[in-house]
Design a protein around this nucleic acid. Structure first.
Lengths: 174, 174
DNA sequence: GTCTATATTCTGATAGAC
DNA sequence: GTCTATCAGAATATAGAC
Protein backbone atom coordinates (compact mmCIF):
# COMPACT_ATOMS: atom_id res chain seq x y z
CA UNK A 1 0.00 0.00 0.00
CA UNK A 2 1.17 3.57 -0.68
CA UNK A 3 2.55 5.70 2.15
CA UNK A 4 -0.27 7.44 3.99
CA UNK A 5 -0.67 11.18 4.02
CA UNK A 6 0.36 12.54 7.41
CA UNK A 7 -2.66 13.00 9.68
CA UNK A 8 -3.66 16.47 10.80
CA UNK A 9 -2.42 15.50 14.23
CA UNK A 10 1.03 14.69 12.86
CA UNK A 11 1.10 17.83 10.74
CA UNK A 12 0.40 19.85 13.87
CA UNK A 13 3.27 18.20 15.73
CA UNK A 14 5.53 18.76 12.71
CA UNK A 15 4.54 22.44 12.64
CA UNK A 16 5.16 22.81 16.37
CA UNK A 17 8.63 21.28 16.07
CA UNK A 18 9.52 23.32 13.00
CA UNK A 19 8.61 26.59 14.70
CA UNK A 20 10.50 25.67 17.87
CA UNK A 21 13.61 24.78 15.89
CA UNK A 22 13.65 27.65 13.40
CA UNK A 23 12.25 30.52 15.46
CA UNK A 24 12.42 29.48 19.11
CA UNK A 25 9.85 28.91 21.78
CA UNK A 26 8.49 32.44 21.86
CA UNK A 27 7.40 32.10 18.25
CA UNK A 28 5.78 28.70 18.69
CA UNK A 29 2.34 30.03 19.65
CA UNK A 30 -0.91 28.16 19.07
CA UNK A 31 -1.79 30.69 16.36
CA UNK A 32 1.53 30.18 14.58
CA UNK A 33 1.41 26.39 14.89
CA UNK A 34 -2.11 26.26 13.46
CA UNK A 35 -1.15 28.56 10.58
CA UNK A 36 2.01 26.54 9.83
CA UNK A 37 -0.04 23.34 9.73
CA UNK A 38 -2.72 24.98 7.60
CA UNK A 39 -5.61 24.68 10.04
CA UNK A 40 -7.45 27.11 12.29
CA UNK A 41 -6.72 27.50 15.96
CA UNK A 42 -10.01 25.77 16.72
CA UNK A 43 -8.89 22.89 14.54
CA UNK A 44 -5.66 22.58 16.49
CA UNK A 45 -7.47 22.62 19.83
CA UNK A 46 -9.66 19.75 18.76
CA UNK A 47 -6.57 17.50 18.51
CA UNK A 48 -4.66 18.98 21.46
CA UNK A 49 -6.80 20.53 24.19
CA UNK A 50 -3.95 22.70 25.45
CA UNK A 51 -0.39 23.68 24.70
CA UNK A 52 0.70 21.21 27.34
CA UNK A 53 -0.88 18.37 25.40
CA UNK A 54 0.98 19.53 22.32
CA UNK A 55 4.24 19.19 24.23
CA UNK A 56 3.31 15.74 25.51
CA UNK A 57 2.34 14.57 22.04
CA UNK A 58 5.68 15.75 20.73
CA UNK A 59 7.67 14.01 23.48
CA UNK A 60 5.75 10.75 23.00
CA UNK A 61 6.59 10.75 19.32
CA UNK A 62 10.25 11.52 20.10
CA UNK A 63 10.52 8.62 22.55
CA UNK A 64 9.23 6.25 19.88
CA UNK A 65 11.85 7.41 17.41
CA UNK A 66 14.48 7.14 20.16
CA UNK A 67 13.85 3.43 20.60
CA UNK A 68 14.39 2.85 16.90
CA UNK A 69 17.55 5.00 16.90
CA UNK A 70 19.20 3.07 19.74
CA UNK A 71 18.65 -0.17 17.84
CA UNK A 72 20.04 1.34 14.64
CA UNK A 73 23.09 2.54 16.57
CA UNK A 74 23.79 -0.91 18.04
CA UNK A 75 23.58 -2.62 14.67
CA UNK A 76 25.11 0.10 12.45
CA UNK A 77 27.54 -1.31 9.83
CA UNK A 78 30.05 1.51 10.47
CA UNK A 79 29.90 0.80 14.21
CA UNK A 80 28.20 2.72 17.04
CA UNK A 81 30.89 5.42 17.38
CA UNK A 82 30.77 6.61 13.82
CA UNK A 83 27.00 6.23 13.66
CA UNK A 84 26.69 8.37 16.76
CA UNK A 85 29.04 11.10 15.56
CA UNK A 86 27.47 11.23 12.10
CA UNK A 87 23.97 11.57 13.48
CA UNK A 88 25.14 14.27 15.89
CA UNK A 89 25.34 16.76 13.06
CA UNK A 90 21.84 17.67 12.05
CA UNK A 91 20.86 15.59 9.06
CA UNK A 92 17.48 17.26 8.94
CA UNK A 93 15.80 14.01 9.93
CA UNK A 94 12.50 13.96 11.79
CA UNK A 95 14.32 12.60 14.84
CA UNK A 96 16.85 15.43 14.81
CA UNK A 97 14.09 17.99 14.58
CA UNK A 98 12.28 16.37 17.50
CA UNK A 99 15.45 16.38 19.61
CA UNK A 100 16.13 20.05 18.99
CA UNK A 101 12.49 20.94 19.64
CA UNK A 102 12.54 19.01 22.92
CA UNK A 103 15.71 20.81 23.96
CA UNK A 104 13.99 24.15 23.40
CA UNK A 105 11.09 23.05 25.60
CA UNK A 106 13.45 21.70 28.25
CA UNK A 107 15.05 25.13 28.48
CA UNK A 108 11.71 26.59 29.51
CA UNK A 109 12.05 24.64 32.74
CA UNK A 110 9.93 21.70 31.58
CA UNK A 111 10.68 18.58 33.60
CA UNK A 112 9.00 16.20 31.14
CA UNK A 113 11.22 17.35 28.29
CA UNK A 114 14.41 17.31 30.39
CA UNK A 115 13.64 13.82 31.61
CA UNK A 116 12.87 12.44 28.16
CA UNK A 117 16.14 13.85 26.81
CA UNK A 118 18.14 12.51 29.76
CA UNK A 119 16.78 9.02 29.10
CA UNK A 120 17.82 9.19 25.46
CA UNK A 121 21.33 10.25 26.46
CA UNK A 122 21.60 7.37 28.89
CA UNK A 123 20.70 4.94 26.09
CA UNK A 124 23.36 6.37 23.79
CA UNK A 125 26.01 6.27 26.50
CA UNK A 126 25.17 2.64 27.29
CA UNK A 127 25.66 1.64 23.64
CA UNK A 128 28.98 3.51 23.39
CA UNK A 129 30.25 2.18 26.71
CA UNK A 130 29.25 -1.42 25.92
CA UNK A 131 30.92 -1.24 22.55
CA UNK A 132 34.16 0.42 23.69
CA UNK A 133 34.49 -1.14 27.14
CA UNK A 134 35.98 2.17 28.29
CA UNK A 135 33.85 4.66 30.23
CA UNK A 136 36.24 7.60 29.95
CA UNK A 137 36.48 7.23 26.19
CA UNK A 138 32.74 6.67 25.83
CA UNK A 139 32.00 9.83 27.80
CA UNK A 140 34.55 11.86 25.83
CA UNK A 141 33.03 10.72 22.55
CA UNK A 142 29.57 11.56 23.83
CA UNK A 143 30.86 15.04 24.73
CA UNK A 144 32.25 15.47 21.20
CA UNK A 145 28.87 14.43 19.84
CA UNK A 146 27.17 16.92 22.15
CA UNK A 147 29.56 19.59 20.90
CA UNK A 148 28.81 18.78 17.26
CA UNK A 149 25.12 18.86 18.02
CA UNK A 150 25.35 22.10 19.98
CA UNK A 151 27.39 23.86 17.31
CA UNK A 152 25.07 22.68 14.62
CA UNK A 153 21.92 23.84 16.34
CA UNK A 154 23.55 27.13 17.30
CA UNK A 155 24.62 27.99 13.77
CA UNK A 156 28.35 27.56 14.51
CA UNK A 157 29.08 25.49 11.47
CA UNK A 158 32.55 24.16 10.75
CA UNK A 159 32.21 21.84 7.75
CA UNK A 160 35.49 20.15 8.64
CA UNK A 161 34.63 19.49 12.29
CA UNK A 162 33.71 15.83 11.80
CA UNK A 163 36.84 15.25 9.72
CA UNK A 164 38.99 16.78 12.48
CA UNK A 165 37.39 14.58 15.10
CA UNK A 166 38.02 11.44 13.05
CA UNK A 167 41.64 12.53 12.65
CA UNK A 168 42.11 12.85 16.41
CA UNK A 169 40.26 9.62 17.21
CA UNK A 170 42.53 7.81 14.75
CA UNK A 171 45.50 8.78 16.94
CA UNK A 172 43.77 6.82 19.72
CA UNK A 173 43.64 3.77 17.44
CA UNK A 174 39.89 4.12 16.86
CA UNK B 1 37.59 52.46 48.10
CA UNK B 2 34.89 49.86 48.81
CA UNK B 3 33.24 47.94 45.95
CA UNK B 4 30.31 49.90 44.58
CA UNK B 5 26.75 48.69 44.81
CA UNK B 6 25.58 47.48 41.41
CA UNK B 7 23.65 50.18 39.58
CA UNK B 8 19.96 49.71 38.85
CA UNK B 9 20.93 49.32 35.23
CA UNK B 10 23.25 46.43 36.07
CA UNK B 11 20.72 44.84 38.38
CA UNK B 12 18.22 44.89 35.52
CA UNK B 13 20.67 43.18 33.20
CA UNK B 14 21.46 40.64 35.93
CA UNK B 15 17.74 39.95 36.38
CA UNK B 16 17.22 39.56 32.64
CA UNK B 17 20.08 37.06 32.39
CA UNK B 18 18.97 35.13 35.46
CA UNK B 19 15.45 34.70 34.11
CA UNK B 20 16.70 33.67 30.67
CA UNK B 21 19.02 31.07 32.18
CA UNK B 22 16.74 29.61 34.83
CA UNK B 23 13.32 29.82 33.18
CA UNK B 24 13.90 30.44 29.48
CA UNK B 25 13.03 33.23 27.12
CA UNK B 26 9.28 32.93 27.46
CA UNK B 27 9.55 33.75 31.14
CA UNK B 28 11.90 36.71 30.67
CA UNK B 29 9.15 39.31 30.24
CA UNK B 30 9.56 42.97 31.11
CA UNK B 31 7.23 42.46 34.06
CA UNK B 32 9.27 39.54 35.38
CA UNK B 33 12.61 41.29 34.83
CA UNK B 34 11.44 44.39 36.68
CA UNK B 35 10.10 42.31 39.58
CA UNK B 36 13.32 40.24 39.78
CA UNK B 37 15.37 43.44 39.91
CA UNK B 38 13.03 44.96 42.47
CA UNK B 39 11.82 47.91 40.40
CA UNK B 40 8.60 48.74 38.58
CA UNK B 41 8.13 48.24 34.87
CA UNK B 42 8.23 52.00 34.45
CA UNK B 43 11.55 52.03 36.27
CA UNK B 44 12.93 49.41 33.90
CA UNK B 45 11.76 51.33 30.83
CA UNK B 46 13.58 54.43 31.99
CA UNK B 47 16.90 52.58 31.66
CA UNK B 48 16.00 50.50 28.59
CA UNK B 49 13.40 52.00 26.28
CA UNK B 50 12.46 48.62 24.81
CA UNK B 51 13.13 44.93 25.18
CA UNK B 52 15.52 45.22 22.26
CA UNK B 53 17.66 47.69 24.16
CA UNK B 54 17.74 45.26 27.06
CA UNK B 55 19.17 42.62 24.73
CA UNK B 56 21.75 45.04 23.35
CA UNK B 57 22.80 46.12 26.82
CA UNK B 58 23.29 42.49 27.77
CA UNK B 59 25.36 41.68 24.68
CA UNK B 60 27.56 44.77 25.17
CA UNK B 61 28.34 43.70 28.70
CA UNK B 62 29.08 40.15 27.52
CA UNK B 63 31.52 41.36 24.85
CA UNK B 64 33.43 43.31 27.49
CA UNK B 65 33.77 40.22 29.70
CA UNK B 66 34.79 38.23 26.61
CA UNK B 67 37.81 40.43 25.97
CA UNK B 68 39.01 39.87 29.53
CA UNK B 69 38.40 36.11 29.27
CA UNK B 70 40.48 35.71 26.11
CA UNK B 71 43.40 37.43 27.81
CA UNK B 72 43.01 35.27 30.91
CA UNK B 73 42.98 32.17 28.70
CA UNK B 74 46.19 33.14 26.88
CA UNK B 75 48.06 33.78 30.13
CA UNK B 76 46.53 31.07 32.33
CA UNK B 77 49.15 29.26 34.50
CA UNK B 78 47.59 25.85 33.75
CA UNK B 79 47.69 26.59 30.02
CA UNK B 80 44.89 27.54 27.60
CA UNK B 81 43.54 24.00 27.10
CA UNK B 82 42.87 23.29 30.74
CA UNK B 83 41.65 26.83 31.36
CA UNK B 84 39.20 26.45 28.50
CA UNK B 85 37.89 23.05 29.59
CA UNK B 86 37.56 24.12 33.23
CA UNK B 87 35.61 27.23 32.35
CA UNK B 88 33.38 25.22 30.01
CA UNK B 89 31.58 23.71 32.98
CA UNK B 90 29.40 26.39 34.46
CA UNK B 91 31.24 27.96 37.36
CA UNK B 92 28.31 30.23 38.04
CA UNK B 93 30.39 33.24 37.04
CA UNK B 94 28.81 36.37 35.62
CA UNK B 95 30.43 35.58 32.27
CA UNK B 96 28.95 32.09 32.18
CA UNK B 97 25.52 33.45 32.94
CA UNK B 98 25.87 36.02 30.18
CA UNK B 99 26.93 33.34 27.68
CA UNK B 100 23.98 31.11 28.47
CA UNK B 101 21.58 34.05 28.36
CA UNK B 102 22.95 35.12 24.97
CA UNK B 103 22.52 31.57 23.66
CA UNK B 104 18.86 31.66 24.67
CA UNK B 105 18.39 34.92 22.78
CA UNK B 106 20.28 33.58 19.78
CA UNK B 107 17.81 30.70 19.59
CA UNK B 108 14.98 33.16 19.10
CA UNK B 109 16.51 33.95 15.73
CA UNK B 110 18.40 37.03 16.93
CA UNK B 111 21.29 37.86 14.60
CA UNK B 112 23.03 40.20 17.07
CA UNK B 113 23.25 37.47 19.69
CA UNK B 114 24.37 34.79 17.22
CA UNK B 115 27.06 37.08 15.85
CA UNK B 116 28.38 38.08 19.27
CA UNK B 117 28.63 34.41 20.29
CA UNK B 118 30.33 33.44 17.03
CA UNK B 119 32.99 36.11 17.60
CA UNK B 120 33.70 34.80 21.08
CA UNK B 121 34.07 31.27 19.72
CA UNK B 122 36.51 32.45 17.08
CA UNK B 123 38.65 34.08 19.77
CA UNK B 124 38.75 30.88 21.82
CA UNK B 125 39.62 28.76 18.80
CA UNK B 126 42.44 31.15 17.85
CA UNK B 127 44.00 30.84 21.30
CA UNK B 128 43.72 27.01 21.27
CA UNK B 129 45.05 26.72 17.73
CA UNK B 130 47.98 29.10 18.35
CA UNK B 131 48.93 27.23 21.49
CA UNK B 132 48.63 23.71 20.06
CA UNK B 133 49.75 24.37 16.50
CA UNK B 134 47.23 21.72 15.43
CA UNK B 135 43.85 22.71 13.97
CA UNK B 136 42.25 19.27 14.17
CA UNK B 137 43.15 18.90 17.84
CA UNK B 138 42.14 22.48 18.62
CA UNK B 139 38.73 21.95 17.03
CA UNK B 140 38.21 18.63 18.80
CA UNK B 141 39.03 20.21 22.15
CA UNK B 142 36.66 23.05 21.39
CA UNK B 143 33.96 20.49 20.62
CA UNK B 144 34.59 18.75 23.93
CA UNK B 145 34.28 22.14 25.64
CA UNK B 146 31.04 22.78 23.78
CA UNK B 147 29.79 19.38 24.91
CA UNK B 148 30.67 20.10 28.54
CA UNK B 149 28.96 23.46 28.27
CA UNK B 150 25.90 22.02 26.55
CA UNK B 151 25.49 19.21 29.07
CA UNK B 152 25.93 21.57 31.94
CA UNK B 153 23.36 24.07 30.73
CA UNK B 154 20.96 21.26 29.85
CA UNK B 155 21.09 19.65 33.27
CA UNK B 156 22.94 16.54 32.03
CA UNK B 157 25.50 16.53 34.77
CA UNK B 158 28.22 13.91 34.95
CA UNK B 159 30.55 14.98 37.77
CA UNK B 160 33.34 12.83 36.34
CA UNK B 161 33.10 14.17 32.78
CA UNK B 162 36.07 16.54 33.09
CA UNK B 163 38.17 13.81 34.70
CA UNK B 164 37.33 11.44 31.84
CA UNK B 165 38.32 14.02 29.26
CA UNK B 166 41.65 14.64 30.96
CA UNK B 167 42.25 10.89 30.98
CA UNK B 168 41.68 10.64 27.22
CA UNK B 169 43.71 13.76 26.40
CA UNK B 170 46.60 12.30 28.41
CA UNK B 171 46.70 9.40 25.94
CA UNK B 172 47.40 12.02 23.26
CA UNK B 173 50.39 13.25 25.30
CA UNK B 174 48.58 16.43 26.37
C1' DG C 1 -13.15 17.53 12.35
C1' DT C 2 -12.90 22.04 11.35
C1' DC C 3 -14.37 26.74 11.59
C1' DT C 4 -15.68 31.59 13.59
C1' DA C 5 -16.59 34.40 17.47
C1' DT C 6 -15.59 35.66 21.88
C1' DA C 7 -13.72 35.88 26.74
C1' DT C 8 -9.62 36.50 29.62
C1' DT C 9 -5.22 37.24 30.77
C1' DC C 10 -0.53 38.58 29.56
C1' DT C 11 2.93 41.59 27.22
C1' DG C 12 5.24 45.58 25.53
C1' DA C 13 4.97 50.28 25.62
C1' DT C 14 3.33 55.41 26.57
C1' DA C 15 2.09 59.41 29.60
C1' DG C 16 2.47 61.87 33.27
C1' DA C 17 2.69 62.37 38.62
C1' DC C 18 6.08 62.50 42.28
C1' DG D 1 14.97 57.96 38.64
C1' DT D 2 11.15 55.69 39.96
C1' DC D 3 6.28 55.09 40.27
C1' DT D 4 1.11 54.33 38.84
C1' DA D 5 -2.34 54.30 35.35
C1' DT D 6 -3.55 53.04 31.04
C1' DC D 7 -3.70 51.16 26.22
C1' DA D 8 -3.26 48.24 22.03
C1' DG D 9 -2.26 43.94 20.56
C1' DA D 10 -1.03 39.10 21.36
C1' DA D 11 -1.65 34.51 23.64
C1' DT D 12 -4.36 30.72 25.61
C1' DA D 13 -8.63 28.83 25.85
C1' DT D 14 -14.01 28.13 25.50
C1' DA D 15 -18.59 27.84 23.02
C1' DG D 16 -21.15 26.72 19.59
C1' DA D 17 -22.22 26.72 14.36
C1' DC D 18 -21.44 23.88 10.31
Amino acid sequence: MPPEEPSTRDRLLDAFETLLVTEGSRAATLDAVAAEAGVSKGGLLYHFHSKDELVEGMLDRMRLMGERDATAMRTAPQGPVDYYLETSVDSGSAFDRALIAAARIAQENDERASHALAELRDQWFAVLSDHLGDEALARTIQLIGDGLYFDDTSGFTDPRALEHVRDVLARLDL
